[in-house]
């Protein structure tokens, strides 16, 4: 390792200061605030504050609405992660086969990633809103009683579709890179060994993509847990009832709409713990799974 030398003792601190300041203002400080808030009970106007210890956590964890939200989140995250990755992998494999205009297809595939979550949500809402959605009418003509404003599973389908669609581009990009890293000669050797294209995919390509797939699995789970707030807010607002209210949406709803600040803070602390353990799990697991020699 090369030891960098600086002309002044303070210079290295000065250089990392902007990054540290951003992390401090947008992560550490709010995190500490959330931790402090989660032990307090406060009225909606902030006039009276009382220390209650872990009471907020006890209340949140025994609340059936919170348990429901955990279930909703699990279903939503698993479905979103699965569909966004499966479709992206399928498209990446197909894009590899394109002979002419490969770059053009890839560029088109990556565009949806540039759309903000709320805009993506609105897009899907305009297509599938039961009263004015462009595609709602044809769906009804097909004999499907389409009404995501009343039917919870249809609402879930809609938010999963919107959230997956948005993430496909990102996954596609990683899968394309992953596929390109697999030496062609391996596939040729497998072809000579007698493997057809489906067999080559499942016995050679898919196992060799495992590091990419696992990385994306964790990234997509985190995406589904947090970054889909905008989509849910725009499309269903957590409804109908609480059938699409994910954990992060409930944090917002309880804290900023219902102004139950203590419990909302406790929820965000729980969420933070979930994400930290997921990330730790990823780092421990990914390092063991990489098999490239």
């Amino acid at each position: 390792m090369n030891r960098a030398t600086f002309p002044h003792r303070l210079l290295p601190w000065l250089l990392v200061a902007p990054q540290l300041a951003i992390s401090f203002v947008f992560f550490y400080w709010p995190a500490v605030q959330a931790l402090r808030q989660s032990t307090l009970r406060e009225d909606a106007f902030g006039l009276k504050t009382q220390f209650v210890g872990l009471a907020n956590f006890r209340r949140v964890l025994s609340d059936p609405a919170y348990v429901n939200s955990i279930q909703v989140t699990a279903v939503f995250s698993v479905l979103t992660a699965f569909f966004s990755m499966a479709i992206a992998l399928l498209l990446a494999v197909q894009a590899e086969k394109v002979v002419r205009g490969k770059g053009f297809y890839r560029t088109l595939m990556i565009w949806p990633y540039a759309v903000a979550p709320a805009i993506a949500g609105m897009l899907w809402l305009f297509m599938f809103n039961p009263s004015f959605g462009t595609l709602a009418w044809p769906l009804r003509q097909l004999g499907i009683t389409w009404d995501p404003l009343l039917n919870g599973s249809q609402a879930m389908t809609l938010v999963v579709a919107a959230a997956s669609w948005k993430q496909i581009s990102y996954n596609f990009l990683f899968f394309v890179a992953g596929l390109q890293a697999i030496p062609r000669s391996l596939l040729e050797a497998a072809a000579i060994d007698g493997a057809g294209s489906a067999r080559r995919f499942w016995t050679i390509v898919f196992p060799l993509l495992a590091p990419t797939t696992f990385f994306l699995l964790v990234v997509n789970t985190v995406y589904a847990l947090f970054d889909t707030f905008g989509i849910i807010h725009a499309v269903t607002g957590g409804g109908p009832g609480k059938s699409t209210e994910t954990l992060v949406y409930k944090v917002y709803n309880d804290g900023f709409v219902n102004l139950i600040l203590g419990e909302s803070a406790a929820q965000s602390v729980i969420l933070m713990v979930i994400v930290i353990s997921l990330t730790a799990f990823q780092f421990k697991y990914v390092e063991r799974r990489v098999h490239y020699g």
Binding site: P183, S185, E188, A189, A190, I192, I204, L208, Y292
Partner: peptide, 14 residues
Amino acid sequence: DIAMVFQNYALYPH
């Protein structure tokens, strides 16, 4: 019905 040996061996790494 042929077998091939590649320059980079093309062994399946997994």
